[in-house]
Amino acid sequence: MLVMEDQLVYTPKDFKSSNEVRWCPGCGDHAIMAAIQKAMAGLGKKHEDYAVISGIGCSSRFPYYMSTYGFHTIHGRAAAIASGVKCANPELSVWQISGDGDALAIGGNHFIHTIRRNIDLNLILFNNKIYGLTKGQYSPTTDRGFVTKTSPFGTIEDPFIPGQLVLGSRGTFFARAIDNNVKLCQEVCEEAAKHEGTSVVEVLQNCVIFNEGVHAEISNPKTRADNQLHLVHGKPMLFGKENEKGIVWEHGHLKVVELGKDGYTIDDIMIHDAHEPSRAVHMALINMSLPEFPVAMGVIRAVKTDVYDEMMVKQIENVQAESKIKNMDDLLNSGDTWVVE
Protein backbone atom coordinates (compact mmCIF):
# COMPACT_ATOMS: atom_id res chain seq x y z
CA MET A 1 0.00 0.00 0.00
CA LEU A 2 1.21 3.50 -0.82
CA VAL A 3 -0.17 6.63 0.74
CA MET A 4 0.14 9.58 -1.59
CA GLU A 5 -1.16 13.03 -0.82
CA ASP A 6 -3.79 11.70 1.58
CA GLN A 7 -5.03 9.38 -1.11
CA LEU A 8 -5.05 5.67 -0.52
CA VAL A 9 -3.49 3.75 -3.33
CA TYR A 10 -3.48 -0.01 -3.18
CA THR A 11 -2.46 -2.65 -5.65
CA PRO A 12 -4.69 -5.66 -6.37
CA LYS A 13 -2.12 -7.76 -4.50
CA ASP A 14 -3.04 -5.95 -1.28
CA PHE A 15 -6.43 -7.68 -1.50
CA LYS A 16 -5.13 -11.24 -1.97
CA SER A 17 -4.99 -13.50 1.07
CA SER A 18 -2.32 -16.12 1.63
CA ASN A 19 -4.88 -18.92 1.34
CA GLU A 20 -4.44 -21.24 -1.61
CA VAL A 21 -7.14 -20.62 -4.21
CA ARG A 22 -8.96 -23.91 -4.75
CA TRP A 23 -11.27 -23.20 -7.65
CA CYS A 24 -10.81 -25.53 -10.61
CA PRO A 25 -8.19 -24.45 -13.14
CA GLY A 26 -9.97 -22.54 -15.88
CA CYS A 27 -12.96 -21.65 -13.67
CA GLY A 28 -14.41 -18.22 -14.44
CA ASP A 29 -14.22 -17.32 -10.76
CA HIS A 30 -10.47 -16.63 -10.97
CA ALA A 31 -10.95 -13.84 -13.49
CA ILE A 32 -13.87 -12.31 -11.61
CA MET A 33 -11.85 -12.20 -8.41
CA ALA A 34 -8.94 -10.54 -10.21
CA ALA A 35 -11.35 -7.91 -11.55
CA ILE A 36 -12.84 -7.24 -8.11
CA GLN A 37 -9.40 -6.95 -6.53
CA LYS A 38 -8.41 -4.43 -9.18
CA ALA A 39 -11.62 -2.49 -8.62
CA MET A 40 -11.16 -2.40 -4.83
CA ALA A 41 -7.58 -1.21 -5.16
CA GLY A 42 -8.68 1.90 -6.99
CA LEU A 43 -11.76 2.96 -5.04
CA GLY A 44 -9.98 5.07 -2.44
CA LYS A 45 -11.58 3.19 0.48
CA LYS A 46 -9.47 2.05 3.43
CA HIS A 47 -8.58 -1.64 3.31
CA GLU A 48 -10.17 -2.31 6.71
CA ASP A 49 -13.46 -0.82 5.53
CA TYR A 50 -14.11 -3.61 3.04
CA ALA A 51 -16.28 -6.53 4.11
CA VAL A 52 -16.92 -9.44 1.76
CA ILE A 53 -19.90 -11.64 2.61
CA SER A 54 -20.82 -14.85 0.81
CA GLY A 55 -23.31 -17.67 1.07
CA ILE A 56 -22.60 -21.26 0.05
CA GLY A 57 -21.41 -22.59 -3.28
CA CYS A 58 -18.19 -22.59 -5.28
CA SER A 59 -18.15 -18.82 -5.72
CA SER A 60 -18.94 -18.32 -2.03
CA ARG A 61 -15.42 -19.50 -1.12
CA PHE A 62 -14.44 -16.04 -2.36
CA PRO A 63 -13.91 -14.32 1.06
CA TYR A 64 -11.20 -16.83 2.02
CA TYR A 65 -9.10 -15.70 -0.92
CA MET A 66 -9.37 -12.03 0.01
CA SER A 67 -7.29 -10.24 2.65
CA THR A 68 -10.23 -8.05 3.69
CA TYR A 69 -12.71 -8.75 6.46
CA GLY A 70 -14.75 -11.68 5.23
CA PHE A 71 -17.62 -13.90 6.27
CA HIS A 72 -18.47 -17.17 4.54
CA THR A 73 -21.98 -17.73 5.86
CA ILE A 74 -24.78 -20.20 5.16
CA HIS A 75 -26.67 -21.12 2.03
CA GLY A 76 -28.85 -18.35 0.66
CA ARG A 77 -28.44 -15.92 3.53
CA ALA A 78 -25.57 -13.74 2.35
CA ALA A 79 -27.87 -10.85 1.41
CA ALA A 80 -29.44 -10.79 4.88
CA ILE A 81 -26.09 -11.02 6.64
CA ALA A 82 -24.56 -8.36 4.39
CA SER A 83 -27.58 -6.12 5.14
CA GLY A 84 -26.89 -6.49 8.87
CA VAL A 85 -23.21 -5.62 8.36
CA LYS A 86 -24.09 -2.48 6.42
CA CYS A 87 -26.70 -1.35 8.96
CA ALA A 88 -24.27 -1.90 11.83
CA ASN A 89 -21.68 0.27 10.12
CA PRO A 90 -22.88 2.24 7.05
CA GLU A 91 -19.31 3.49 6.48
CA LEU A 92 -18.23 0.08 5.24
CA SER A 93 -18.00 -1.03 1.62
CA VAL A 94 -19.95 -4.27 1.72
CA TRP A 95 -19.71 -6.84 -1.07
CA GLN A 96 -21.89 -9.89 -1.41
CA ILE A 97 -20.68 -12.83 -3.46
CA SER A 98 -23.36 -15.34 -4.43
CA GLY A 99 -23.97 -17.90 -7.13
CA ASP A 100 -27.20 -18.42 -9.03
CA GLY A 101 -28.39 -21.09 -6.59
CA ASP A 102 -27.38 -19.14 -3.51
CA ALA A 103 -28.97 -15.85 -4.61
CA LEU A 104 -31.96 -16.98 -6.65
CA ALA A 105 -33.08 -20.37 -5.28
CA ILE A 106 -32.60 -20.76 -1.53
CA GLY A 107 -31.84 -17.06 -1.12
CA GLY A 108 -34.49 -15.68 -3.48
CA ASN A 109 -36.51 -14.01 -0.76
CA HIS A 110 -33.52 -12.14 0.70
CA PHE A 111 -32.39 -11.20 -2.82
CA ILE A 112 -35.62 -9.44 -3.77
CA HIS A 113 -36.15 -7.76 -0.41
CA THR A 114 -32.59 -6.47 -0.18
CA ILE A 115 -33.01 -4.90 -3.61
CA ARG A 116 -36.42 -3.48 -2.68
CA ARG A 117 -34.94 -1.81 0.40
CA ASN A 118 -32.05 -0.45 -1.64
CA ILE A 119 -29.39 -1.10 0.98
CA ASP A 120 -26.00 0.10 -0.23
CA LEU A 121 -24.44 -3.28 -1.06
CA ASN A 122 -22.52 -4.54 -4.07
CA LEU A 123 -24.05 -7.86 -4.94
CA ILE A 124 -21.96 -9.85 -7.41
CA LEU A 125 -24.03 -12.65 -8.85
CA PHE A 126 -21.93 -15.42 -10.42
CA ASN A 127 -24.26 -17.01 -12.95
CA ASN A 128 -23.02 -20.33 -14.34
CA LYS A 129 -26.52 -21.77 -14.70
CA ILE A 130 -25.62 -24.92 -12.75
CA TYR A 131 -24.97 -26.22 -9.22
CA GLY A 132 -21.23 -26.78 -9.19
CA LEU A 133 -20.38 -27.58 -5.57
CA THR A 134 -22.95 -30.39 -5.44
CA LYS A 135 -21.66 -31.59 -8.82
CA GLY A 136 -24.02 -30.68 -11.57
CA GLN A 137 -27.72 -30.25 -10.83
CA TYR A 138 -29.88 -27.67 -12.58
CA SER A 139 -30.23 -24.22 -11.01
CA PRO A 140 -32.96 -21.57 -11.21
CA THR A 141 -31.15 -20.03 -14.18
CA THR A 142 -30.71 -23.26 -16.14
CA ASP A 143 -32.39 -23.05 -19.54
CA ARG A 144 -35.61 -25.01 -20.13
CA GLY A 145 -34.94 -28.49 -21.46
CA PHE A 146 -31.34 -28.58 -20.28
CA VAL A 147 -30.06 -32.01 -19.27
CA THR A 148 -28.34 -32.23 -15.86
CA LYS A 149 -27.98 -34.92 -13.20
CA THR A 150 -31.36 -34.02 -11.72
CA SER A 151 -32.97 -33.38 -15.10
CA PRO A 152 -31.79 -36.42 -17.10
CA PHE A 153 -34.71 -35.90 -19.50
CA GLY A 154 -34.36 -32.13 -19.62
CA THR A 155 -35.79 -29.53 -17.22
CA ILE A 156 -39.47 -28.76 -17.50
CA GLU A 157 -39.32 -25.30 -15.93
CA ASP A 158 -38.41 -21.82 -17.09
CA PRO A 159 -35.35 -20.09 -15.66
CA PHE A 160 -35.18 -16.74 -13.93
CA ILE A 161 -33.64 -13.92 -15.91
CA PRO A 162 -31.78 -12.24 -13.01
CA GLY A 163 -32.18 -8.70 -14.39
CA GLN A 164 -35.95 -9.16 -14.57
CA LEU A 165 -36.03 -10.03 -10.90
CA VAL A 166 -33.88 -7.00 -10.09
CA LEU A 167 -36.21 -4.66 -11.96
CA GLY A 168 -39.29 -6.39 -10.57
CA SER A 169 -37.87 -5.74 -7.11
CA ARG A 170 -37.53 -2.04 -7.97
CA GLY A 171 -33.76 -2.36 -8.33
CA THR A 172 -31.76 0.81 -8.82
CA PHE A 173 -28.63 -0.73 -10.33
CA PHE A 174 -28.12 -3.65 -12.66
CA ALA A 175 -25.06 -4.45 -14.74
CA ARG A 176 -23.96 -7.48 -16.69
CA ALA A 177 -20.47 -8.71 -17.49
CA ILE A 178 -18.78 -11.89 -18.60
CA ASP A 179 -15.88 -13.71 -16.96
CA ASN A 180 -13.51 -13.64 -19.94
CA ASN A 181 -13.58 -9.85 -20.08
CA VAL A 182 -11.70 -8.77 -16.95
CA LYS A 183 -11.66 -5.13 -17.96
CA LEU A 184 -15.45 -5.02 -18.30
CA CYS A 185 -15.86 -6.88 -15.00
CA GLN A 186 -13.62 -4.38 -13.27
CA GLU A 187 -15.42 -1.40 -14.80
CA VAL A 188 -18.90 -2.54 -13.81
CA CYS A 189 -17.71 -3.45 -10.31
CA GLU A 190 -16.29 0.04 -9.93
CA GLU A 191 -19.59 1.52 -11.09
CA ALA A 192 -21.44 -0.79 -8.72
CA ALA A 193 -19.28 0.38 -5.82
CA LYS A 194 -19.87 4.03 -6.67
CA HIS A 195 -23.63 3.56 -6.95
CA GLU A 196 -25.52 4.35 -3.75
CA GLY A 197 -28.00 1.57 -3.14
CA THR A 198 -28.11 -2.13 -3.96
CA SER A 199 -25.96 -2.73 -7.03
CA VAL A 200 -26.46 -6.07 -8.71
CA VAL A 201 -23.79 -7.24 -11.13
CA GLU A 202 -24.59 -10.43 -13.00
CA VAL A 203 -21.39 -12.03 -14.22
CA LEU A 204 -21.88 -14.76 -16.81
CA GLN A 205 -19.44 -17.34 -15.55
CA ASN A 206 -18.22 -20.57 -17.04
CA CYS A 207 -18.09 -23.78 -15.02
CA VAL A 208 -15.42 -25.83 -16.72
CA ILE A 209 -16.45 -29.08 -15.08
CA PHE A 210 -20.24 -29.17 -15.03
CA ASN A 211 -21.37 -26.62 -17.58
CA GLU A 212 -18.42 -26.06 -19.90
CA GLY A 213 -19.25 -23.60 -22.64
CA VAL A 214 -22.64 -22.56 -21.32
CA HIS A 215 -21.92 -18.96 -22.29
CA ALA A 216 -19.64 -19.84 -25.24
CA GLU A 217 -21.82 -18.27 -27.86
CA ILE A 218 -21.60 -14.98 -26.00
CA SER A 219 -17.96 -15.18 -24.94
CA ASN A 220 -16.36 -16.64 -28.05
CA PRO A 221 -13.71 -14.10 -29.20
CA LYS A 222 -14.66 -14.78 -32.82
CA THR A 223 -18.31 -13.93 -32.46
CA ARG A 224 -18.50 -11.77 -29.38
CA ALA A 225 -18.46 -8.47 -31.24
CA ASP A 226 -21.71 -9.52 -32.89
CA ASN A 227 -23.17 -11.24 -29.87
CA GLN A 228 -22.52 -8.62 -27.17
CA LEU A 229 -23.79 -5.07 -26.92
CA HIS A 230 -21.63 -2.95 -24.60
CA LEU A 231 -23.80 -0.28 -23.11
CA VAL A 232 -22.31 3.04 -22.03
CA HIS A 233 -24.50 5.76 -20.57
CA GLY A 234 -24.95 8.61 -23.09
CA LYS A 235 -23.50 6.61 -25.97
CA PRO A 236 -25.32 5.08 -28.97
CA MET A 237 -26.11 1.36 -28.77
CA LEU A 238 -23.71 0.12 -31.43
CA PHE A 239 -22.13 -3.31 -31.80
CA GLY A 240 -20.43 -5.53 -34.38
CA LYS A 241 -16.75 -5.65 -35.36
CA GLU A 242 -16.92 -2.28 -37.04
CA ASN A 243 -19.75 -0.92 -34.90
CA GLU A 244 -21.82 -1.34 -38.01
CA LYS A 245 -24.91 -2.54 -36.18
CA GLY A 246 -27.16 -0.78 -33.73
CA ILE A 247 -30.36 -0.91 -31.73
CA VAL A 248 -33.42 1.17 -32.59
CA TRP A 249 -36.78 1.51 -30.82
CA GLU A 250 -39.70 0.89 -33.14
CA HIS A 251 -43.38 0.33 -32.35
CA GLY A 252 -42.62 -0.21 -28.69
CA HIS A 253 -39.92 -2.79 -29.34
CA LEU A 254 -36.18 -2.97 -29.74
CA LYS A 255 -34.87 -3.89 -33.15
CA VAL A 256 -31.41 -4.65 -34.55
CA VAL A 257 -30.51 -2.63 -37.65
CA GLU A 258 -27.47 -2.20 -39.84
CA LEU A 259 -26.22 1.31 -40.43
CA GLY A 260 -26.68 2.38 -44.04
CA LYS A 261 -29.19 -0.38 -44.68
CA ASP A 262 -32.95 0.20 -45.03
CA GLY A 263 -32.26 3.89 -44.58
CA TYR A 264 -30.99 3.66 -40.93
CA THR A 265 -28.31 6.15 -39.92
CA ILE A 266 -26.44 6.77 -36.68
CA ASP A 267 -29.12 9.29 -35.76
CA ASP A 268 -31.71 6.51 -35.52
CA ILE A 269 -29.69 4.52 -33.00
CA MET A 270 -30.85 4.66 -29.38
CA ILE A 271 -28.68 6.50 -26.90
CA HIS A 272 -28.29 4.51 -23.68
CA ASP A 273 -29.80 6.25 -20.67
CA ALA A 274 -28.92 4.23 -17.56
CA HIS A 275 -30.36 6.95 -15.34
CA GLU A 276 -33.87 6.83 -16.79
CA PRO A 277 -36.25 6.00 -13.88
CA SER A 278 -38.72 4.15 -16.16
CA ARG A 279 -37.99 0.45 -16.37
CA ALA A 280 -39.38 -0.15 -19.87
CA VAL A 281 -36.24 0.21 -21.98
CA HIS A 282 -33.99 -1.31 -19.31
CA MET A 283 -36.26 -4.33 -19.18
CA ALA A 284 -36.16 -4.66 -22.95
CA LEU A 285 -32.37 -4.47 -22.88
CA ILE A 286 -32.18 -7.12 -20.16
CA ASN A 287 -34.46 -9.39 -22.19
CA MET A 288 -32.36 -9.25 -25.36
CA SER A 289 -31.10 -12.74 -26.18
CA LEU A 290 -29.37 -14.63 -28.96
CA PRO A 291 -29.86 -15.20 -31.79
CA GLU A 292 -32.22 -12.30 -32.57
CA PHE A 293 -30.34 -9.81 -30.39
CA PRO A 294 -26.89 -9.36 -28.92
CA VAL A 295 -26.66 -9.80 -25.14
CA ALA A 296 -26.52 -6.48 -23.26
CA MET A 297 -23.37 -5.91 -21.20
CA GLY A 298 -22.24 -3.06 -18.99
CA VAL A 299 -24.33 -0.88 -16.68
CA ILE A 300 -27.91 -1.27 -17.87
CA ARG A 301 -29.55 0.65 -15.03
CA ALA A 302 -28.19 3.11 -12.43
CA VAL A 303 -30.92 5.23 -10.87
CA LYS A 304 -30.59 7.39 -7.80
CA THR A 305 -33.17 7.15 -5.04
CA ASP A 306 -33.33 6.89 -1.24
CA VAL A 307 -30.88 4.44 0.29
CA TYR A 308 -31.99 2.34 3.27
CA ASP A 309 -28.90 2.70 5.44
CA GLU A 310 -28.74 6.45 4.92
CA MET A 311 -32.43 6.80 5.74
CA MET A 312 -31.92 4.67 8.84
CA VAL A 313 -29.18 6.95 10.13
CA LYS A 314 -31.15 10.06 9.24
CA GLN A 315 -34.31 8.84 10.94
CA ILE A 316 -32.39 8.05 14.12
CA GLU A 317 -30.82 11.51 14.09
CA ASN A 318 -34.16 13.22 13.54
CA VAL A 319 -35.89 11.32 16.32
CA GLN A 320 -32.95 11.91 18.66
CA ALA A 321 -33.12 15.65 18.01
CA GLU A 322 -36.82 15.73 18.93
CA SER A 323 -37.06 13.22 21.79
CA LYS A 324 -36.81 14.11 25.44
CA ILE A 325 -35.44 10.65 26.13
CA LYS A 326 -31.67 10.84 25.90
CA ASN A 327 -30.65 7.73 27.84
CA MET A 328 -31.96 4.68 29.67
CA ASP A 329 -32.61 6.48 32.96
CA ASP A 330 -34.84 8.92 31.06
CA LEU A 331 -36.72 6.05 29.46
CA LEU A 332 -37.12 4.06 32.66
CA ASN A 333 -38.61 7.07 34.40
CA SER A 334 -40.86 8.18 31.53
CA GLY A 335 -44.62 7.76 31.41
CA ASP A 336 -46.77 6.62 34.32
CA THR A 337 -44.67 6.09 37.41
CA TRP A 338 -45.44 6.41 41.09
CA VAL A 339 -43.43 6.72 44.25
CA VAL A 340 -43.82 4.42 47.22
CA GLU A 341 -42.69 6.30 50.34
Binding site: T73, C87, N109, I316
Partner: peptide, 23 residues
Protein backbone atom coordinates in the same frame (compact mmCIF):
# COMPACT_ATOMS: atom_id res chain seq x y z
CA UNK B 1 -34.82 5.41 17.66
CA UNK B 2 -34.14 8.10 20.25
CA UNK B 3 -31.78 5.64 21.90
CA UNK B 4 -30.21 4.80 18.55
CA UNK B 5 -31.79 1.37 18.07
CA UNK B 6 -31.46 -0.07 14.60
CA UNK B 7 -34.67 -2.09 14.41
CA UNK B 8 -34.82 -4.01 11.16
CA UNK B 9 -38.12 -5.64 10.22
CA UNK B 10 -36.85 -8.45 8.07
CA UNK B 11 -38.60 -10.33 5.26
CA UNK B 12 -38.70 -13.55 7.29
CA UNK B 13 -37.49 -15.19 10.48
CA UNK B 14 -34.28 -16.33 8.84
CA UNK B 15 -33.41 -12.85 7.66
CA UNK B 16 -34.24 -11.63 11.17
CA UNK B 17 -31.44 -13.62 12.72
CA UNK B 18 -29.11 -13.35 9.72
CA UNK B 19 -29.19 -9.56 9.70
CA UNK B 20 -28.46 -9.75 13.43
CA UNK B 21 -25.50 -12.07 12.80
CA UNK B 22 -24.21 -9.60 10.21
CA UNK B 23 -24.57 -6.76 12.70
Amino acid sequence: KDLGVKAFQAEDEIAGICTAIGA
